[in-house]
Design a protein around this nucleic acid. Structure first.
Length: 401
DNA sequence: GTCAATTCACATGAAAGAGACCACGGTCTAGTG
DNA sequence: CTAGACCGTGGTCTCTTTCATGTGAATTGACGA
């Protein structure tokens, strides 16, 4: 037994694939950001007045995930803060909010609470009227003359959850403030985000807009090379690895984060297998693993009712020859509910749950009209065929079927 | 055969309820001087 | 007399139900050629 563990540990300790793995971690901020000079300059020139504590134009950054939006903005704000503190002033506060993290931002209340706590104060997690939180917020920032720069990452997520009303409130707040001023930087993954928000908000929010184009495969390679030089021991990587990684990620709309993830997971796999070199095969394996883990993780952590619905879909997907529809799913779902003694939800609710799965990419949904056969959703299971048994197993244990 | 009306089986929206959580302020209790 | 325990109130949040309205094409049935 001990010798077995010895083997595992020693192969791990001896492996010299990584020099510094943290470089590949998502939260690592690199020194340089290749191929984003133009955008960084733009951001910098727009935010420059903040150094003197003057209000800056509201800024909006668009671009798909992993195109360096967040990084660029953070880089610029960091530089600005550095200069501000060098000059000894403290009339600038930068608040960074990631609206994708569910706990932070799915209500107006929480966003405010998060901003306030980022400013070093605190408010209860719940229990206060929203306008009380607003006035507390105003009170806090009005204490002195300063500029509050609020960076809202993935702002589209927040707006989808709430309405755009809070953005309106926030932009309008400036006219009520005497000392402090607020500027917003919105970062959005969706290019069409601006189209469906209130025109009043749009005009005040979109004073400046910057678009981040996806990286192409060559640019991705540059990025990978640069990071890999720091992350991996020399000579570990095959030359083809970069282009392969980049190609995979370029297929996913040039997502650099994805490319780096791929490289990291591939490295981990190579390390685990005690390989001396990181060859192309590991990239393939890593790609599968990432997909697999992501999906199974989602499935495992869904609430019970959702799992039941998904289980019904998986069960129907194989059998039904002319497609799976909402009605089918609901019937099957009722069956399983009775079997597991779980309360049965209304069809209305199940319909929404199905829509949520669509958003998660577990299924693909088309609203079709079958004439006299009514209008319904046609559901296609998107879990890869080789994962389905595993997914089923997870659901069965979770639901004790 | 053509055309409009009908009809199906849900989609999609809006509103509101239930139950959990939490802060706040007032009241009660027990310990202290 | 005061600190802390304990309630009731009023607020939010999430998940859900209820009620209402919308919708695209297969089907139907009337109509004219």
């Amino acid at each position: 037994m001990g010798s077995k563990l010895d083997n595992i540990f020693s192969s791990y300790a001896n492996s010299n694939i990584f020099k510094d793995k943290s470089v590949l971690q998502i939260n690592y901020t690199p020194e340089t950001i290749p191929h984003r000079d133009k955008q960084i300059e733009e951001v910098a020139s727009i935010l420059a007045p903040a150094i003197k504590g003057e209000r800056v134009s509201n800024l909006f950054c668009f671009g798909k995930t992993g195109t360096g939006k967040t990084l660029s903005v953070q880089y610029v704000t960091k530089e600005i803060l550095k200069r501000v503190s060098d000059s000894g002033a403290d009339n600038l506060k930068v608040v960074y909010l990631n609206c994708k993290l569910k706990k932070i931002a799915d209500t107006e209340y929480r966003i405010l609470a998060e901003i306030i706590s980022a400013l070093g104060e605190s408010v209860p997690a719940t229990g206060l009227p929203t306008d009380a939180v607003y006035s507390k917020f105003i009170e806090i920032i009005e204490r002195k003359k300063q500029l509050i720069l609020i960076v809202m990452d993935e702002i589209d997520q927040a707006v989808k959850k709430i309405s755009d009303g809070f953005l309106y409130n926030l932009t309008r707040l400036n006219s009520e403030l005497k000392n402090a001023q607020i500027s917003l930087v919105g970062i959005s993954n969706s290019l069409t985000f601006m189209d469906n928000i209130d025109p009043r908000v749009r005009s005040s929010l979109g004073e400046e807009e910057i678009i981040f184009a996806p990286y192409n495969a060559l640019q991705l390679q540059d990025i990978l090379r640069e990071r890999a030089a720091q992350a991996f021991t020399e000579g570990v990587l095959d030359e083809g690895v970069f282009s392969k990684c980049a190609a995979f990620a370029a297929r996913e709309h040039g997502d650099a984060r994805r490319a780096l993830d791929l490289l990291r997971v591939a490295g981990e796999l190579a390390e685990r297998e005690g390989s001396k070199k990181l060859t192309m095969e590991f990239i393939d394996k890593a790609n599968n693993k990432i997909e697999r883990d992501k999906m199974l993780d989602i499935i495992e952590n869904e609430p019970r009712q959702h799992q039941l619905v998904l289980y019904s879909i998986i069960n129907l997907a194989g059998k039904e020859k002319d497609g799976v529809f909402t009605g089918n799913v609901y019937n099957k779902y009722q069956e399983f509910c009775q079997k597991t003694k779980v309360e049965i939800l209304t069809q209305r609710r199940v319909s929404d749950i199905i829509a949520e799965f669509d958003m998660l990419g577990l299924i693909n949904v088309d609203v079709i009209s079958r004439g006299r056969m009514g209008r319904t959703r046609e559901i296609k299971l998107m879990i890869p065929i080789n994962l389905q048994p595993k997914a089923k197993e997870i659901l069965e244990t979770a639901l004790t079927i």
